[in-house]
């Protein structure tokens, strides 16, 4: 079987699967679920193969199985395997406590790295950018600052208790929260619009694929 034949066959299989997915427009059915299961299974299988072929085996070849590997290299190669094995123990109710060590290492390192990046890559630069808008364009800057502050205040429930026992938010806070709610609505609306456009784009690409496959 030549590559061209495989390409042709893959094209037709893609066509059929695309039509199976489109059958969901009518109702949930077995064919749709078949296509979904096939996609999930193939993706999971491929990920597993990639993990083994692209991560584990190269690591073993470079550490434990490396020719002339010294003790340090071996130890260096065993440590991730041990931690990974401990993570596998989480599946056992009796031995799950042993997996807490690996989980702790994983979570600790991830949190540390994420924290550094969040602070230096998002918080500080975006805060500086928000402030710099005032100098560039006063109106835009004021709107930007107003939207940022009111959106943050929307998520703050700073209520006080009245003498009669009723818990209410101060009027100023209520007004600010309402403005922030408006900005939130606009933000969510833009996200929703982008999602719709992306969906339509993907759908048009599928249509073009079908037409090209069927009409030549």
């Amino acid at each position: 079987m030549t590559p061209e034949t495989l390409d042709t066959l893959a094209g037709w299989v893609g066509l059929v699967l695309t039509l199976l997915i489109f059958s969901y427009l009518l109702a949930d059915n077995f064919l749709y679920r078949l296509a979904i299961y096939l996609f999930v299974g193939v993706a999971a299988g491929y990920a597993a193969v990639v993990a083994v072929e692209g991560v584990l085996l190269p690591w073993l070849r470079g550490t434990l199985l490396a020719p002339g590997a010294d003790v340090g290299q071996v130890v260096l190669g065993v440590i991730p395997l041990v931690v990974g094995f401990l993570l596998l123990l989480k599946a056992s109710p009796r031995l799950s406590r042993l997996g807490n060590l690996g989980m702790a290492f994983l979570i600790g390192v991830g949190v540390a790295v994420s924290l550094i990046g969040t602070v230096s890559g998002t918080l500080l630069p975006l805060a500086a950018s928000t402030g710099s808008y005032l100098g560039a364009n006063l109106v835009d800057g004021l709107i930007l600052i107003l939207g940022t502050i009111t959106t943050l205040l929307y998520f703050q429930y700073l209520a006080v208790r009245r003498p009669d026992g009723e818990v209410v938010r101060p009027p100023v806070l209520r007004v600010a929260a309402t403005i922030g709610q408006v900005f939130l609505i606009i933000a969510f609306a833009s996200l929703y619009a982008g999602a719709i456009v992306s969906s339509i784009t993907v759908f048009s690409e599928r249509l073009a694929f079908l037409l090209a496959r069927m009409l030549g």
């Binding site: 996200l191 982008g194 999602a195 456009v197």
Partner: peptide, 11 residues
């Protein structure tokens, strides 16, 4: 993608 554009704009 168009869906991720609002997140990328601030950056």
């Amino acid at each position: 993608t168009a869906a991720a554009e609002p997140v990328a704009r601030p950056y």
